[in-house]
Each structure stands twice: as structure tokens, then as C-alpha cells.
Design a protein around this nucleic acid. Structure first.
Lengths: 367, 367
DNA sequence: CCGAAAGGGTCAAAGGTCGG
DNA sequence: CCCGACCTTTGACCCTTTCG
């Protein structure tokens, strides 16, 4: 609306020919929202269509005029935007069907720098599993047993360090960040990862209704009596169980069942965990802004790796469909994680199966 | 405004298929025997008049939708025919008068079952946009203005009904559920959808730091003074803003920025919204168990549609990669939604910019 | 005779092509 | 490779015809 007003005003002043607001040549009507010559219009269209990112070799203040309009692409483009050209006015490319198909076969091979991200992660995860055995004093072939709240708490106090180490090994990018950024990422990661991993390990031992925790023991979701053992002043055991049964039911419906329904494998589990880590929403300071950039790169790399994995497996007719199915479990995990945290908050408020502050803190997302 | 009025507003619009059966845009009446938009009508007329013979470079199964309707002329023409357009209705000369009578009936019986899920949704969304104009008393070309909290509240009270209608139209499956199940799904959907849509609309008007709300007005994230206008006993305006600036900052980092960074388009936005709806974790009772099943089917259908869309666009070297990139925005949305809700709870506790109970309730996920 | 619906035509502004 | 002259299509806008 406003631009047409401007234009009316403009026309009112000079009924004579209009001039290209970018290079001052005689204009050829409006293009993408501004009076422009064909050349500048075409330049703008190409820049947008092909998603070019020009860089100015100087100070972003190059002089643009018809005879020198090609001296600096970045500044020419900037001027296009300044005079009111709209990227959104550039349309989808037409008639492009088929033309890319020949190209596609060649681009099938993924260009990746070094080793796949998920492979590094997988190695770090293998190591994590070994480390855990000693950290949690696990004897070889010790059979899993149901665990109670206070034991679980001990496990996760140790896990904080273990998981942090794991992240540093799995993602050199993570290791490089400033402590504050690392901490933020960690806090966003720890709880959903914990829930996802326990559910996954339960699932992968074919026991759907069990959370297999990092120490090797488990929480039996069907029989929470053994979890809520402590006698507590305020509430009876039954009461406690009925109060918090939902908390664990939640994990079943949001995490365990989807994992089971899609028969998620380890590599997929790692990919999900990795995306949760790199689904960062940081950018408060400079380091976090870098993290934000990095996070996007990482997520893309993860997806690429996962696709490559699917292609190599060669068991899915449509790898993209599988990818979509797996990724659409993500919101469930996130949701379960948030709700689970709410229950933890309630428990803390009631001082009922409360966590020590440092542990609770690590389970709490940043905000 | 009473809810019956809202219904009337909705029903008033819904007479006959109002959408172009070729590209799903709002239709402009019948053309050549089928409901169609002007563009598709003109395209069909030219094709027949000039006796063009288009050829499909692919397999004659290209995806046609408003923004990619020009990707393949052959398939667009084929869809015109499929949808019931008659070559004979195109006049070669003005003096030859077509007989319209026999044509009219054929178009009515066009079956949209088996149609892509996202197409039905897209049509319902187009309708939603129209409905909103009347529901929110929008005059044509009314310029958007910054809105304050109390106005926003009014808007969302109306939106409850409007969005519910939208869901029923977009997903016949949803409509079939029991009220309780519908309610659960709705409550899980409403807040993230609201945040996603406002951000998306801000993004698609190239204003990154603005939430464009359904009424057409906006919240200026850079200048919250106009949002928090009410004088309040407990806290000064500055204090309030500083308290809740984070709440909106959150939306920027978690939703607006990712949408912007990936340049998400309308179809992708709808797909994200659809997955959020169908990312259900219900199964308390029998109907909900059905819903759970249905939800998995729906998510797969959505992903399939999205992939087909990407393939038809033919602008991505790797459609699966694009799919992954877009889907990995989901946890951010979910996270933002949960945190946003926490802020809402705080406000309610403080009775500071609190929502009426029924509205707050609809913004609260089930647990 | 009027107004709505559904034809037709026009042209600014999109898009694509292809030597330079 | 990019540029831009040159040509094709698109679709918003407006006019025309028919019909109840």
C-alpha cells in the first residue's frame, strides 16, 4: 500500500520518464517493487533466485551508477534493497522440472569435511558406555535390578560429569565454546537426553515399560512401589505413586512408545540426541551467536549423516520418509521433557523426592 | 461478540467449493466448468485458444499448487482437465456462444478424498484467512498497527472458535473424534500454532521483529511499550517490560529466527503446524488410542506430501535434507511454546496481564 | 433494465534464453 | 562463469455477453 502511495507521489512530480533508482538509467517500469532498469531487475532476480551472497571488498559504500554498476555486486544488491525491492516479489523458478535430474545423480555423494558427525558421536557414545561401568561401579554381567529414587539421584549426580565429557568428545565444536555457552547447551540437553536414553535403552532390551538408566539398573514403570520406597512424612507410598504415576506414564506415551513403534535404532537415537543438543536458541552474547550459527551447521550435518546412513542400509524404499518419521518424534521428546520437569518442580516445592539443588539445576532448561 | 456470530461468520463464507481445484487458491467462481482462480482460468483459456501442446519433462505427475503452479504446464493443464474444465467452453471467437448448462453439474462431484492431506489443509487455511477478516472486523486494506495486551486477548478469544473450525475443516479425521479427544488435541495445538503462525506471518512480511497476529495487527517486539500499556498497581510499565521482554525474545530466537534463516514457505509452515497437531501423546481411553494410531498415519501423510511438494518444486538438490532442516525446527517451537506458557502462568499468578480462565486454559497443554 | 457470473482482451511485470 | 538485450508467459484488471 505505502509503496503505491510513494509512487503516486513520485509520478505526480514527474510525468516524464522514470529512472532506475539503482543505477539512474532510464527505468523500464517497476520491478520487484521499485522503478528499475531491466538490467538491475535481472541482477536482483538472479541474486535472489540463486541465493547468492555477495561480499563487498571495500566498505559497503560503493558508488553505483549505470556505467559502474557492476563494480560491486554486494553494494548493487544492497542498493536494490534500499530502494525498496522485495525479495518476496521474486517468484519460484518455472520450467525447471527435469533439468536438475541429470545433475542429481552426481550430487548424490555427500561432500563432507572429515568424518561424519554422527560417527564421532557414536564413538564417544561407545566410550561413554564403558566409562559408565566404572563410574557406577558396575561389575561385569551384573543383572539389572529395580532402583529407587535415592539411588537414581546418586546415578545422575555422577552422570552430569560423564555426559559433559561425552559431549566434549562427541562434538569438538561444543568443547570450543565458552563455559557459559557450554552450560546453556548442557542444561537444554541433559534432561531430554536422559529421558530419551533411558527410554531407548528400555526399548532396545525389548522391555517397553522399563526405563533402563545409565548405571544399568532400571525403573519399572509398571511397578513404581520399588521406586518410591522412602517413607515420607507427608504422604503415604500409594498416595505418592498415584500422584506421580502420570509423570512416568508421560514418558511411555511420549517417548517409549514412539521409539518402539518406529523401532528406532542406535544411530537414529544418537541423531535425535544430537539434534536436541544443537537445537539451540542461544544468542545472548557473541559466543552464543557463534553457537547459533554452529548449531545450524551441526543440525544439517546430522541430517546428512542420517540420510547417508539410511541410503547405505538400503532397507527403506524412501529414506526421506523414514527421516521424516524419526524427526517427527522430536516434539514429543521435548514435550515430555518439559512436563517431566514440571513434575520435578512440584516435587521440589513439596520437598518430596526433591533433588539436590545442583542436580535440579542441571535438569532445568535455561530461560 | 457472541460465539453464534462467529459461527455465522464462518458459515456465511462456506458455500460450495470456494477454492481453485487446480491450485487451491481462493477461487473466483466457475471457469470453463470448474471452480478455479483467475490465473488458472486464464492459463486454460490461453492453452486452448492458442492450441498449445505442453510436454511434461517428468512423469506427468507433477505437483500443482498456487506457488508452484508454473513448474509444469503439461501437468497444470492435465489437472484442469481432471478437475472438469471443458475445452469446448473456451470460445474461439466472441460470436460463438458456449452452452454453459450441461457443464455446471460435473464440477460438483469432484472427490477430494485421497487428496493430499496438506492440500485440504491449505484450502482450509485460505478459508481461515478469509474468515478472520470478518471475525476480527477487518476493513479491506486497513494498515496493521501495534496492538496492546487487552486487544490481543480479545483477538484470541475469537481465535479459539476460528481455529477449532479450521481444524475441523482441515482434518476430517479430527472432526470425527470425541469432544474430549478433540479438546486435548486442541489444547496441545493452540499455543504453539499461535506462536508459530504469528512469527511466520511476521517473517513473511519481511519484518523479522514483529509478531503479526491473526487480526492483522502486530506486536512490535522491539518496542513493547505499546503492548504493555495498561497502568498496573504493582509494577511500572518499564518494570513489566523488563520482566517480560525475555518472553518475547524467546519467540525471536526459537521461532522467528529459524523461520527466517531457512526461509520457510507457507506449505512448510502448514506442514509444521500439522505435525504439531498430530504429535499427539494421547491414549488414555479408547478414542484416544484411535487418535494415537491416526496421528501416526497423519504424520506420515504430512511428510509424504511435503516431500512430494519439494520434489515438484525441484529447487533443492536434496529434498530429504530440506525436509530434515525444516523438521528440526520443531523442538524449538515446542520449547518456545512451553516457556511462553510458563511466563503466562507467572503473569496469571501475579494477576498481571492475566488471561481470562477459559482462554488461559485453552493455551495450556493437557497433562 | 439490472446485476451477477463467466466469457474475452490487455499489458505491466514476472520468467527464461543465450551471445558477448 | 556473470551480464543484460531480447523474447515468452503470467495474471491482475477491466470490458463484454448472457441470463434470471
Amino acid at each position: 500500500m505505502s509503496s503505491s502511495h510513494l509512487m503516486n507521489g513520485f509520478e505526480g512530480v514527474s510525468t516524464a520518464p522514470q529512472y532506475c533508482l539503482i543505477c539512474c538509467e532510464v527505468a523500464d517500469g517497476h520491478h520487484f517493487g521499485a522503478p528499475a532498469c531491466r538490467a538491475c531487475a535481472a541482477f536482483f532476480r538472479r541474486t535472489v533466485q540463486l541465493n547468492k551472497n555477495h561480499e563487498c571488498p571495500k566498505n559497503n559504500q560503493c558508488f553505483i551508477l549505470s556505467n559502474v554498476r557492476n563494480m560491486c555486486r554486494a553494494c548493487r544488491y544492497d542498493k536494490c534493497i534500499d530502494v525498496g525491492m522485495k525479495r518476496s516479489a521474486v517468484q519460484q523458478r518455472r520450467d525447471q522440472l527435469g533439468k536438475r535430474d541429470e545433475i542429481r545423480s552426481t550430487s548424490e555423494c555427500f561432500s563432507r569435511r572429515g568424518e561424519p558427525v554422527l560417527d564421532t558421536m557414536k564413538r564417544a557414545y561407545e566410550k561413554l558406555l564403558v566409562v559408565r561401568k566404572s563410574v557406577h561401579n558396575r561389575v561385569e554381567n551384573q543383572p539389572p535390578r529395580p532402583i529407587c529414587f535415592s539411588e537414581l539421584q546418586q546415578v545422575y549426580l555422577k552422570e552430569m560429569t560423564v555426559v559433559y565429557q561425552f559431549l566434549c568428545e562427541a562434538f569438538p565444536e561444543y568443547y570450543e565454546f565458552l563455559p557459559d555457552t557450554k552450560r546453556s547447551l548442557f542444561k537444554n540437553f541433559f534432561l531430554p537426553f536422559t529421558l530419551l536414553e533411558s527410554s531407548f535403552n528400555g526399548h532396545s532390551t525389548n522391555k517397553q515399560d522399563v526405563m533402563l538408566i545409565p548405571s544399568g539398573d532400571y525403573i519399572d514403570l509398571e511397578h513404581l512401589e520399588s521406586y518410591f520406597t522412602n517413607n515420607h512424612d507427608k504422604f503415604s507410598q500409594e498416595k505418592t505413586i498415584s500422584m506421580f504415576a502420570q509423570q512416568f506414564q508421560l514418558l511411555r506415551t511420549c517417548i517409549t512408545h514412539p521409539l518402539h513403534a518406529e523401532n528406532v535404532d542406535t544411530y537414529e537415537f544418537l541423531a535425535l540426541a544430537a539434534i536436541i543438543l544443537w537445537e539451540s536458541d542461544l544468542e545472548a552474547d557473541l559466543d552464543r551467536q557463534n553457537a547459533q550459527e554452529e548449531a545450524i551447521q551441526m543440525r544439517n550435518a546430522i541430517i546428512r549423516d542420517l540420510l547417508f546412513y539410511y541410503q547405505s542400509m538400503n532397507i527403506y524404499d524412501d529414506v526421506a520418509l523414514r527421516l521424516g518419521t524419526i524427526l517427527s518424534i522430536l516434539p514429543s521428546i521435548q514435550r515430555a521433557s518439559y512436563r517431566f520437569h514440571e513434575y520435578m518442580e512440584i516435587k521440589n516445592l513439596l520437598n518430596l523426592y526433591a533433588l539436590p539443588q545442583n542436580l535440579f539445576d542441571m535438569f532445568s532448561p535455561v530461560s
